[in-house]
């Protein structure tokens, strides 16, 4: 079956995006990409630590789609600046916009995200904005030229699972863009749930990176995303949730 996720002219076979943060040892990243099948990985841009000389790029295979984020940005101007810098590294046009003015819960600023999206989409970036699940912001991002919308499943790094499903479901129904559930997905079954509902992809970082066995957890998430997607495509069967008729409402038609 030819089921690809197409974003910015790239056809992806895998609907699992992974992150490159929080690994105890970055050298395990190639094995995680292999076991999970993930073709997209996020990275962050930081000031060079002249003493460490560490660079995550040495561990990312060449054919992986790089999704730099704008972490550290507290407003649209900073996000735009980071995005332009990231692109100058010559690793493609993809950018995950992340504008976070709140250090306590790491909640994104929807208004500033829309502003940054508009500017960067006009400059030819493939913009994937990270937001609180919000239908109106999602629609505004669509008009602003976003290539996908990435609502959070629960707060970043919380591993609390897919807590925002009611709102994300509405976004999937109403917004004509791929909806990628990002952040908070703690277990493979969380990812399956999002995919069954019609999410285009899931982005998972912490749950894989901090597992006792990240390679095995990568495989578990790869399979979970695939299962959920297949379930969605196959058409989930009816679940009888409606109360059955107490008294007929249509009897008058036969009177």
């Amino acid at each position: 079956m030819n089921d690809f996720l197409e974003i910015g002219n790239i056809k992806l076979k895998s609907r699992l995006f992974t992150g490159s943060g929080k690994y105890s040892d970055d050298s395990i990243i190639p094995d995680v990409l292999e076991s999970s099948g993930s073709q997209v990985i996020t990275v962050a841009l930081r000031r060079v630590d002249f003493n460490a000389n560490e660079n995550v790029m040495t561990h990312i295979p060449k054919d992986t789609v790089l999704l730099p984020n704008t972490s550290g940005a507290r407003n649209s101007e900073e996000a735009i600046r980071i995005a332009r810098l990231a692109r100058s590294a010559g690793c493609g046009d993809w950018i995950k916009i992340e504008v976070i003015p709140d250090n306590r819960y790491l909640m994104p600023d929807g208004y500033e995200t829309v502003k940054a999206t508009e500017v960067l989409a006009n400059e030819g970036f493939i913009v994937l904005p990270y937001i609180n699940p919000d239908l109106i912001i999602g629609k505004q991002l669509h008009s602003a030229g976003a290539a996908a919308v990435m609502p959070l499943g629960s707060p970043i790094g919380s591993n609390r699972g897919f807590r925002t499903e009611e709102i994300v479901r509405i976004m999937i129904e109403e917004i004509d863009l791929p909806i990628i559930v990002d952040a908070g997905i703690g277990k493979p079954s969380d990812a399956t749930k999002a995919m069954e509902m019609g999410a285009a992809a899931c982005l998972v970082n912490t749950a894989i990176a901090v597992a006792d066995n990240p390679v095995l957890m990568g495989r578990a998430f790869g399979n979970a995303v695939k299962s959920g997607r297949d379930g969605f495509l196959a058409g989930i069967g009816a679940q009888n949730t409606n109360a059955s008729a107490s008294s007929p409402l249509t009897g008058f038609l036969d009177e």
């Binding site: 943060g21 990275v43 962050a44 841009l45 000031r47 660079n55 984020n69």
Partner: peptide
């Protein structure tokens, strides 16, 4: 851009940012 590294000269009071990619979600 990288091809301008050799021709861009650092002068007194210049500000530069040197950045690289690190792990991130």
């Amino acid at each position: 851009p990288m091809d301008k590294y050799k021709t861009t000269i650092l002068n007194d009071n210049d500000k530069i940012e040197v950045l690289n990619f690190v792990g991130g979600g």
